[in-house]
Design a protein around this nucleic acid. Structure first.
Lengths: 181, 181
DNA sequence: ACTTAATTATATCGCTTTGATATATTTCAT
DNA sequence: ATGAAATATATCAAAGCGATATAATTAAGT
């Protein structure tokens, strides 16, 4: 997904925003953070290009002794460009997990390490689930609500699986360690 | 996740392989394809670097009228490097979905389009689920089995959610379209 | 009251990855 | 026999990533 489109989406949903604020929505506590990602290195150039293309307006507020604060806002041409992008066939979902890659080789690793890895991931998923359920559904668009529900369902399945099956893998891992000794 | 580590992992699990074969395991029907991804543009340079660093051996088989076929094999230094990499704290899981991003703005899109998007994603998840369940658990390591189970659980949750909640979103979308007309 | 840490905010830069493309042969199906 | 798909390596521009620099402001800890 093109970062320009992501920026247009955020500006469309949130009204005006700075690059800094856009990154927060895409990467940190924001509603989009669960399924997109973009850092400063792509957001700032994207906003410049959008501004050059006339898809957003940029109001530079002068500030004493620090760089101008640039507040961006989507315009009607930008809204059309966003729609065009949304109507194109979306790229395949992409899931990457260094955690699962490591667990795949769990047999080579100390049981203690595997145990810690899974525990950390369990608490990560717990946090993510809590974070996604924070949003109140009532004031959202039906699309946003649907997406939130999807995320919740997937997180819950991942969490349940880890909690239910953790001990099986650990037991196996401990058994393998004893065999070596 | 560094592509060099991914290559070491595949070579460790599969024995000897060419760059072409490694890509298949990481990207297409392979066991790793569900949670990692790498193209030729990163695999070939990674294999060269690994070879330079003495972590894999490379047997170049001369072939008439086409470039040498380079068969790589992990060695003991490579196995140690893999272990080192696996013991490091794994990067956070990353999930990206242009599909969910589009659905977030479902209210702006024609109901027919939303309908088609969801149907496509349902059949994608059905395929993925079938593909992941193809593997027979009996001959796998316990780590691989655990990872396979995780993938299956998550795919199933995603599929169930889409099938159960699709009609709600579509109904809402159709209602919105009538309101405009 | 004082200092430390976190937050706000923009920007750059090297490195890696991506996605597409080029090339050339063999194998399989029609 | 002809076209399509698979095998296999390689390169390249464009994009993105992660880390870092800068600098002021605000919140928190002691």
């Amino acid at each position: 997904m093109d970062v320009k489109t992501l920026c247009l989406g955020v500006l469309s949903a949130q009204g005006e925003a700075t690059g800094y604020e856009i990154r927060k929505v895409l990467k940190e506590e924001g509603a989009f953070s669960h399924f997109v990602d973009a850092g400063y290195g792509s957001i700032y150039p994207a906003l410049s290009k959008l501004s050059d293309a006339g898809l957003v307006s940029c109001e530079a507020q002068e500030q004493a002794k620090r760089p101008d604060k640039k507040v961006y806002q989507i315009n009607s041409a930008g809204r059309m460009a966003l729609l065009d992008a949304l109507l194109e066939p979306p790229a395949a979902d992409k899931f990457r997990s260094a955690f699962l890659f490591a667990l795949f080789f769990g047999d080579l690793l100390p049981a203690r390490h595997v145990d810690r890895l899974i525990d950390q991931r369990i608490s990560w998923y717990r946090d993510a689930l809590a974070r996604i359920n924070e949003f109140d559904g009532s004031d959202q668009s039906s699309g946003a609500y649907f997406v939130q529900g999807f995320g919740g369902a997937v997180y819950k399945a991942a969490l349940d699986y880890l909690e239910t099956n953790k001990h099986v893998l650990i037991a196996e891992s401990l058994r393998a360690e004893k065999d070596v000794a």
